[in-house]
Design a binder for these strands. Structure first.
Lengths: 216, 216
DNA sequence: GGATGTGAATTGGTTCACAGCA
DNA sequence: TGCTGTGAACCAATTCACATCC
């Protein structure tokens, strides 16, 4: 049946893409989809999609494809989005508030319970219905709201300190936007998104193209 | 000397991390650094760091390490950050403006020349000194300001249309924040950053931890 | 017939182990 | 001696090819 040990992280990162496409298909009342169609909609190869899904079981029908809504629910369960996940965003600057708005509006599967900041100008305000707490209240709110995921959008110098506080409160999944290398115990999962890195690594390829254009 | 063909993309994505650390070291007047120290500061293994750098040449001194400022300049040149890169941000919503502010303030190596939007409420405004143009002006500004990189922060339904317009103007490096699968010619490089995907794939691991905690 | 599910082959990336040099 | 640079060994991930089943 479903084989091997843990699924590789590369597979896990593709699941939300499948979910996004399946959400669309369900909305458009398309009831069955082949790995070939999913390939066109996701940009991944059909074989890869079948292998990815096969990690968790056999959900398709040979000769037909996958039932969109069924597959969608399977993936929700695999990721863990069938149960509510509570998220805290630490840092209510432009990036933190943008992230909050984006997820409250576009991401029905997670629940942003609060933003945290130290600036008296904004503590007490709301962003898209989400309260901005003072950073002092972090531990209390994590406990009361049962926060499972922390999102760090504070300046790099303060990021490690926030990680330590989150870990102390048993928040072991952290999304970090600060340009810093963070340390945490083995069992804590940190995903780093560094906007500068994304932009800079892209510039490598932009330059390439220009060079090619100039060559010859 | 520097071997093999093209460097793998995984190497390219680590270069900006080295750059960030080297910037810090240079600021702290540390003149020499070993791959072991770089390992601690970046989270990558020392062997990997040496291999990465070896792709582009031999920049270290055996028995000593790397000269921080020299290595920094080498990496700047490899990425292409020694010359100015002009960036346009399409979509001046919360995410677009946050990205603009972030890069204007924190990223000295790139130059955000403009934001673009269709909302009359904000067209004509400035964000951190960067003008917000009407989307109609996109092609003109790209030509005049010699834009090499486009950043897409528009809603998913409009993203493909923007890609087409950028490609038409020979912008062949695109950073896409819209949750959509985009099509472009082979020679155009698109990096996707999907904030929902990052959050959702993290939730997979948050759930794991809870399960483990509950087991036995 | 047509699409899934999967072993086998291949490719790509990382780690190991050590030779080479200041 | 100490740290870089790199071939070899290893491991992970993707692609290929096809048997399997509706």
């Amino acid at each position: 049946m479903s084989p091997k040990g843990d699924p590789p992280i590369s597979v896990i990162k593709r699941l939300p893409v499948y979910l996004r496409v399946l959400d669309n298909l369900v909305k458009r009342d398309i009831e069955v989809v082949s790995s070939k169609t999913l390939s066109k909609e996701t940009g991944f190869t059909a074989e890869q999609i079948r292998k990815d899904l096969a990690f968790f079981g056999a959900f398709g029908t040979r000769g037909t494809g996958y039932t969109t809504n069924y597959l969608r629910e399977i993936i929700l369960r695999i990721i863990g989005l069938d149960k509510q996940t509570n998220v805290a965003i630490i840092g209510a600057g432009h990036l933190g508030t943008a992230f909050a708005r984006y997820n409250v509006r576009e991401n029905p599967y997670t629940n942003v319970v609060g933003l945290f900041d130290v600036s008296p100008d904004i503590v007490g305000d709301e962003v898209e219905g989400v309260p901005i707490y003072h950073l002092n209240e972090l531990e209390d709110v994590i406990k009361h709201e049962r926060v499972q995921v922390g999102v760090i959008t504070v300046p790099a110098v303060h990021a490690q300190e926030i990680v330590n506080r989150l870990v102390e409160e048993n928040v072991n999944a952290i999304l970090n936007f600060a340009p810093a290398t963070l340390n945490a115990p083995e069992n804590v999962r940190i995903h780093n998104v560094d906007l500068t890195i994304e932009l800079q690594s892209l510039i490598y390829f932009a330059r390439d193209q220009i060079d090619e254009g100039e060559t010859d």
